[in-house]
Design a binder for these strands. Structure first.
Lengths: 351, 351
DNA sequence: TTGAAAGCGCTAACAG
DNA sequence: CTGTTAGCGCTTTCAA
């Protein structure tokens, strides 16, 4: 008869506490309408028997799955892992997300999705159908993917878009890219720099534009021109080299450069070295992301720290609140901050 | 009547294909005893309707959960994440584990467990009870935890112990720590070193001893004494400083040091610098783990690369095979390898 | 405040 | 080769 392992179920608890299944269920889910006395009797049985609700069963009978799905870009993530360059986006995501989730009895499942595939829809529908997560977290560039957002909406699954504009569907949590870029720029201006180059990231990421905006605003506020000081990069090392070469060929040469991510900043450092420019003596450098390597390189880079853990924790909170039917908030912004290190210094006249 | 979202279930498929539920189930699970013709008709309906089996339902009816649980040490993992020093154990684990798992329709769930808690048992029982994973992967130091192993055994859940001795319960996958240590030692001997110090890791990790063994064996083979050259560390930075100071105070001074992990190697580098010793001019240094930082430090460290991704992938394979009732293998060994960089050079007579 | 009954979507056991 | 039946463990009606 027993075709599975001996497990204590709600039935055993009910029998032990001499109540109905329903009452046990109510206790488990902290629902009202149970006399305190009954509740504690049931709880005692639960503890005594070591009963644990089986999530699959809870899900099946229409309740929550206690699962939150995090969607990352497949190629990018795998490439990062294989490169072993110390990128820690995923680590910070787990740090913020897992811990917050587990506070509420939820679990995170990381899933890699092929952005460029024309099968996203099928892939995603399969995952969602199979898992029935209570919420989904979208990271860039998926957070800007209309197809994905629409699919999630049509399934009625709450989702958070990280690093994407707040006016779309779902919740939005951003890291104040503009503010951070402004802070970085003001830091340099404070050091006396007047020609500050900016290497932008891929235009399909909204945050690329926001970072440019922050820089522009700070420059404008200080009455400094941006003119030829903005060059396009693609977040990759090679593009950083090219962008830097372009900037350093200008007359007069910029005395500082802000790169939209660490890879490009590392590239900028290399490019500067190739031109025998000392950092920070002849060129100050600020980077975005603050991945571990930038602390170990010589000189350690001044960088904008992206509060990934905090942001993802916030995302998880929004999702859990939504699953509980709590009222939803507007777009959330988690501020980043500048970490000054040795790659930035006082401006010196260019040669 | 419909108290849940419209979802296409096995019933719809059965109706559409004009077969019984059971036949659909057989097709889904690739079971035999279905006429090819019937099979393809069912498959057509599945595709047409976009049917996806709900994992919770499969689990509930006694089938597999398609979940593999990975247990990591809570404090260590969180500390690593917070330190942001570029440790990428988790990344490599996910790289190897997730990809392999997804090949077979499985998913990985990472769970942090408190080793020092006297509640491990309850904590674990809860997780296992709630999730009912088809397999569990234990990483050090949990892989050596008798309490955990016993609990898993009593629940009848297949599990793999990574980096633990092969003679315990469950499957075992190791990274040939002894072989790697031997390779590192032979590399140094080949460079002419005769006094090679070794900084051991925490004794509660079996792999600490294996690394020592490999070093000892290589030294013995070359007819070199180990005597006072072995000092105890605890994998932490501070212990690396102290151990190195101890070694460098010896007469004659060792010309090379192998540290049992990167943190201690980084510490050794620092300690050597404090004594104005050039690396690798006056002291060669080899480290274990090969985390990203050791490539970015000056000089880049020669290191033993731990094949974490491969190892975890192997673990996942073992678990899936076990879930399928395939015959089990003996202990598996995934070889690591030495990555020579600039921290090792020819031995020079000590002063 | 409590309980009884009816499923959720799927599979195992047994017929045919 | 295919179908029927009886649950898996839990929650949701709805009734008491």
């Amino acid at each position: 008869m027993s075709r599975r392992r001996a497990g204590v179920t709600i039935k055993h608890v009910a029998a032990d506490a001499k109540v109905s299944l329903q009452t046990v269920s109510r206790v488990i889910n902290n629902e009202p309408n149970v006399r305190p006395e009954t509740r504690s009797r049931v709880q005692a049985s639960i503890d005594k028997l070591g009963y644990v609700p089986l999530i699959a069963a809870q899900r099946l009978s229409g309740r929550r799955s206690y699962l939150i799905l995090v969607l990352n870009d497949r190629d990018r993530t795998i490439a990062d892992w294989k490169a072993r360059q110390g990128g820690d986006w995923v680590n910070q995501m787990l740090l913020g997300g897992m811990l917050k989730a587990s506070e509420h009895g939820y679990r995170l499942i990381l899933e890699l999705v092929d952005t460029h595939s024309d099968q996203i829809e099928r892939e995603l529908a399969t995952t969602i159908g199979a898992l029935q997560p209570d919420g989904v977290i979208l990271t860039p560039p998926h957070s800007e993917n209309a197809q994905i957002c629409q699919l999630l909406e049509s399934h009625g699954i709450p989702f958070v878009r990280i690093g994407a504009a707040g006016d779309g569907p779902g919740f939005s949590v951003t890291m104040d890219d503009a503010g951070s870029a402004r802070e970085a720029t003001e830091h340099l201006i404070g050091l006396g720099h007047r020609r500050i180059g900016f290497i932008a990231g891929l235009p399909e990421y909204s945050l690329s534009a926001w970072r440019v905006d922050g820089w522009r605003a700070a420059m404008a506020d200080a009455g400094l021109p941006c003119e030829d000081l903005l060059v396009q990069g693609d977040f990759g090392y090679q593009s950083g080299i090219e962008a830097t070469n372009r900037l350093l060929a200008l007359h007069p040469r910029p005395t500082a450069i802000i790169a939209s991510n660490d890879q490009m900043a590392l590239a900028a450092l290399e490019a500067a070295r190739n031109m025998k420019l000392d950092v920070p003596g002849s060129l100050s450098l600020v980077s975005f992301d603050n991945t571990p390597v930038v602390r170990f390189i010589q000189p350690p880079l001044t960088a904008v720290d992206q509060p990934i853990a905090e942001t993802v924790a916030k995302a998880v909170e929004l999702l859990i609140a939504a699953a509980r039917g709590e009222p939803s908030h507007g777009p959330e912004v988690v501020p980043g901050h500048l970490v000054p290190r040795e790659s930035t210094g006082p401006a010196r006249p260019t040669g």
